[in-house]
């Protein structure tokens, strides 16, 4: 099984000269099918930068980003947008739902943008909403839902149409502990079903749901738990 996501020696520099900020320095990172990886680190350590590069929302200064064997740099703007809609699900901390659309419409939107017929897109959306346990809220608008419910809609939107890579930036940030755990259960279930997941979190107890925890400091991966296991298993080597 090859990695769904592969960041190869990626650096991201903002600005130039005196105002230069090295948000990420030479980071190599993989996420495999069935694997949930947590990214932890202090504010400003480069967690969101890593995620936006992984999702093709931003491009690295040096190095390359591969999703399911495709180098994002080899795609044009439209190709990257298509990749984002079909292969990558992105969950934002502030949900990022469109207020004028119902839950089902929010979830169906990426599929419709991808040319799916309205009816098919809605059916897929309802399936995704059912998976996150809120099929009964399909016709509500975001401001008629609690924070936890909105975050479920955001997750449904990220998984609709069976996307292989789920990226989540502080998906539990605005939620209380129990609701946060429910969101993690959803992400975990999705990864157990074969997707690769990368989740940024400040909470150790939430990171503990991951198979692997990566620690970032000043744009560098300084440590990780459970490192090398997928490769070691793959190559049939004995663990270190």
């Amino acid at each position: 099984m090859s990695a769904v996501l592969h960041l190869a020696a990626v650096s991201r520099v903002h600005g130039e000269g005196a105002t230069e900020v090295h948000a990420l320095r030479d980071v190599t990172f993989r996420a495999h099918p069935g694997e949930l990886v947590a990214v932890m680190g202090p504010s400003g350590s480069g967690k969101s930068t890593l995620l936006t590069l992984a999702g093709g929302l931003d491009a690295p200064t040096t190095g390359s980003v591969w999703i399911e064997g495709t180098d994002l740099a080899s795609l044009d703007q439209a190709g990257r947008a298509r990749m984002r809609r079909t292969s990558v699900g992105y969950v934002f901390q502030d949900f990022n739902l469109i207020p004028a659309l119902t839950a089902a419409e929010n979830v169906a939107l990426p599929r419709e943008l991808d040319g799916e017929k309205g009816k098919v897109a809605r059916r897929l959306a309802l399936t995704a909403l059912e998976e996150v346990g809120i099929a009964h809220l399909a016709d509500r608008f975001p401001d008629e839902m609690s924070g936890g419910q909105q975050q479920r809609v955001a997750i449904a939107r990220a998984i609709v149409g069976d996307r292989r890579l789920i990226l989540a930036d502080e998906p539990t940030g605005a939620l209380d502990t129990d609701t946060g755990e429910e969101i993690l259960q959803l992400l975990r279930a999705r990864c157990d079903a074969g997707a690769a997941g990368v989740m940024v979190t400040h909470e150790a107890r939430h990171a503990a749901w991951a198979d692997r925890v990566v620690f970032l400091r000043d744009g560098v991966v300084v440590d990780e738990t459970g490192a090398d296991e997928p490769e070691a298993l793959l190559a049939g080597e004995a663990g270190r």
Binding site: A204, A207, W209, V213, F215, E224, T225
Partner: peptide, 8 residues
Amino acid sequence: SATMASLQ
């Protein structure tokens, strides 16, 4: 890392 691994 060690404590995190136990937490996992």
